[in-house]
Simulated assay, not measured.
Amino acid sequence: MKIVVIGGTGLIGSQVVHRLKEQGHDVSAAAPTTGVDLLTGAGLDEALAGAETVVNLTNSPTFDEASAGFFQTSMDNLLEASRAAGVGHAVVLSIVGVDQVPELDYYRAKVLQEDLLRAGGLPYSIVRATQFMEFVDAVLSWTADGDTVRLPRTPLQPIAAADVAAAVAEVAAGAPLNGIRNIAGPEVFPLDDLGRVTLAAKGDARRVVTDDTAGMFAVVKGDVLTAPEGARIAGTRYRDWLAA
């Protein structure tokens, strides 16, 4: 099967490309560095020529209100080019519970991306993942101040990027879901406890202070960012990932 991975040089994309090649698929990684730009459409027609499946793993460079414009333009260009090329399956990576947090600009923008895909006239699949383990350090940095890190008790269920890539590759190589597959890590942590586990594992002497008003995850209500019923649960545990 010929599969094009847009954003195929990034954290998830490079692993998806590797996995699909190992399975024997004809896979190409498309990115600005390979001459493909979703925002301008440059190189898109050439990249999608003969493709059976396209996987869109591109992401907005910002998490503010400008992210909606990124997803609108990039999806418009991708869907138009995919229809013209006769692509039979379009896949995007999204976020578990994304439609339950309208307070966040970026989450609203990702919902827009999903809606554009559903309305785009192509068979499609949406893979929703929980928060990546690789991004926990960044989350801690948002509310770090001197020797303390302020974090809310928001429940998260972190998943390793390698497990996300495996799930995306599986969906890309299969029949269109015309729906959503949710994937998550095996453990739920309150974010403040996740911070403590992370700092302890790294020998970081900073102290986590529980503050339910701190950072972007403070607006999340309940456990909407954890695995819903029927989600696929990956095997990598957070402490094992840290140790590795």
Results as ranks from 00 to 15, higher is better:
residue 82 S to Y: 12
residue 190 P to H: 01
residue 77 N to F: 11
residue 117 L to A: 06
residue 96 V to E: 04
residue 177 L to K: 07
residue 189 F to I: 03
residue 67 S to G: 06
residue 140 L to T: 13
residue 170 E to F: 10
residue 79 L to K: 10
residue 193 D to L: 09
residue 155 P to A: 09
residue 181 R to D: 08
residue 185 G to W: 09
residue 94 S to Q: 00
residue 144 A to D: 01
residue 188 V to P: 12
residue 165 A to N: 14
residue 150 R to G: 05
residue 118 R to V: 09
residue 74 S to Y: 09
residue 113 Q to I: 09
residue 84 A to F: 07
residue 141 S to C: 03
residue 59 N to L: 07
residue 82 S to G: 12
residue 161 A to R: 09
residue 64 D to F: 07
residue 110 K to C: 06
residue 154 T to Y: 04
residue 100 Q to Y: 04
residue 118 R to G: 11
residue 110 K to R: 14
residue 107 Y to W: 13
residue 119 A to M: 15
residue 99 D to P: 05
residue 194 L to A: 07
residue 196 R to I: 11
residue 168 V to D: 01
residue 111 V to D: 10
residue 191 L to T: 04
residue 169 A to W: 01
residue 123 P to R: 01
residue 151 L to E: 02
residue 60 S to T: 10
residue 162 A to L: 08
residue 72 Q to F: 09
residue 177 L to I: 11
residue 160 A to R: 12
residue 88 G to S: 02
residue 66 A to Q: 13
residue 58 T to C: 13
residue 197 V to F: 05
residue 76 D to T: 13
residue 91 V to N: 01
residue 120 G to I: 15
residue 65 E to D: 03
residue 188 V to W: 07
residue 158 P to C: 02
residue 92 V to A: 02
residue 147 D to P: 08
residue 94 S to N: 10
residue 59 N to Y: 09
residue 130 T to Y: 00
residue 93 L to P: 07
residue 196 R to L: 08
residue 157 Q to G: 14
residue 153 R to E: 15
residue 143 T to L: 02
residue 77 N to P: 12
residue 186 P to V: 12
residue 74 S to C: 09
residue 182 N to F: 06
residue 109 A to Q: 14
residue 141 S to A: 12
residue 197 V to G: 03
residue 86 G to D: 14
residue 112 L to Q: 15
residue 102 P to H: 05
residue 152 P to W: 08
residue 114 E to V: 09
residue 87 V to K: 00
residue 160 A to D: 15
residue 87 V to A: 00
residue 146 G to P: 11
residue 133 M to L: 06
residue 194 L to D: 06
residue 136 V to K: 10
residue 173 A to L: 15
residue 124 Y to N: 02
residue 179 G to I: 03
residue 143 T to G: 03
residue 90 A to M: 04
residue 187 E to Q: 14
residue 72 Q to W: 05
